[in-house]
């Protein structure tokens, strides 16, 4: 499940093992989510799912749900 795998990445990157990921979650909701950890999150997601996002796609990301949709679009085999 993309949800569980992405949640594991967010827990690791933001150093919070109890983080409960929701689709409408944004940086406002997570204490350690700043511009630096945002880079780590993108890099970790790309590595884990074996994908490469375009800059224009990264620019449009508003919330965790957008990232999940993007991964699903690149890896339709996963769901």
């Amino acid at each position: 499940m993309i949800h569980d795998e992405l949640q594991a990445i967010l827990r690791e990157v933001f150093g919070d093992e109890n983080l409960e990921m929701t689709d409408d979650m944004t940086a406002e909701d997570v204490e350690k989510w700043d511009s630096l950890s945002h880079i780590n999150m993108i890099v970790a997601a790309e590595e884990h799912f074996g994908v490469r996002f375009k800059n224009s796609q990264i620019a449009r990301l508003q919330c965790v749900g957008d990232l999940k949709d993007l991964i699903m679009k690149k890896r339709p085999d996963l769901d």
Partner: peptide, 15 residues
């Protein structure tokens, strides 16, 4: 400095 951060994101590099 914020623009450096965004470029870091695009280039997958920590500032």
């Amino acid at each position: 400095f914020e623009q450096i951060g965004t470029e870091g994101l695009y280039r997958r590099t920590q500032p």
